[in-house]
Amino acid sequence: MKLSVFTVATPDLLPEELAQAAADAGIEGIEWRFKEIPAEAAEEKPSFWRHNRCSIDPNGTQEDLLRFKQAADKHGRRSLAVVPYLTCGDVEATEKVMQVAKLIGASFIRVGIPGYDRTRNYNELYDQAVRYLHEVQDLAAAYGVKAVVETHHLTITPSAGLTHRLVSHFNPQHIGVLYDPGNMVHEGYENYRMGLELLGPYLAHVHVKNGGYRKTPSEDGSSASWSGEWVPLDQGAVPWKQVIQDLQSVGYEGYYGIEDFSGTFESREMLLRFAEQMNIWADHKQSV
């Protein structure tokens, strides 16, 4: 089983510290977060989406960029991906990320997909995404870097089915799917094996995290609302042992990338526990 870490989940570690921690845990691949730290967040406590010390600054120099490759290389890790927060249709920014990925030897990037919040018709957003991905596909072929679309809540690709509908226009050598069952707790659940069978050659990568549900009664107690929240890997709604079996049933041999947002453990311990738990689940499958 090949393991990786998306550095959004290790905000307190510098690149060199993260590479060492990954090596200590037996995690081979690193998915580098590609996002600047807001100036006003620089003095804040490290956090996933603001003061993340393990992020590539899009405005960095080539020397700054190569720091991440060197950190991985020093500890025998692989720079697997560059993971930005792109806007659908921003071809110029997408090409810049492709260039960075090629520079540091990463094999894929995440691309931008329209969000969905009821303010625009899905069909318009879908057409916009198809036009964008046609241009992305050309870039991916030119740079030798795959572009992946993530199954993500609050977008037009929350499920395997809707993601497949979008990517099926394209060559799976250049456009793939980042499958994230944790996101599907919030929105987009389908039978895991059925979705994976549908994705077929488009399945490019898997993110590993877990979520659960919180019930909030109304003030008068007459009704209640439910919302998703992040929880530790072995305590959520995603049955990861089953998901791993389903992934193996379709011949998946790629990486499993940790993206734990529960905040239960300090980063180094989280990585060690992730590797230990995934190996237990993998061993269970082999013994069945």
Score class of each variant (00 low, 15 high):
V5E: 00
F6I: 10
T7P: 00
Q20W: 10
A25L: 05
G26T: 06
I27N: 02
F34I: 04
E36Y: 10
A39F: 07
A41Q: 10
S47N: 12
R53T: 06
S55A: 14
E63M: 08
L65Q: 06
K74R: 15
G76F: 08
V82N: 04
V82W: 06
D90G: 08
K96S: 11
R110A: 10
G112D: 07
N123M: 12
Y126E: 00
D127G: 10
A129K: 06
V130P: 06
E135F: 02
A141Q: 05
G144M: 01
V145Q: 04
V148D: 00
T157F: 05
P158I: 11
R165F: 07
V167C: 06
S168C: 13
H169E: 08
G176V: 11
D180Y: 08
V185S: 02
G195F: 05
G195E: 13
L199G: 04
P201T: 09
Y202H: 13
K209P: 14
N210F: 05
R214N: 14
E219F: 04
G221V: 09
A224R: 05
G228P: 09
E229K: 11
Q242E: 06
Q242N: 07
Q242W: 01
Q245S: 14
Y252I: 04
E259C: 01
T264C: 12
M270Y: 00
H284V: 03
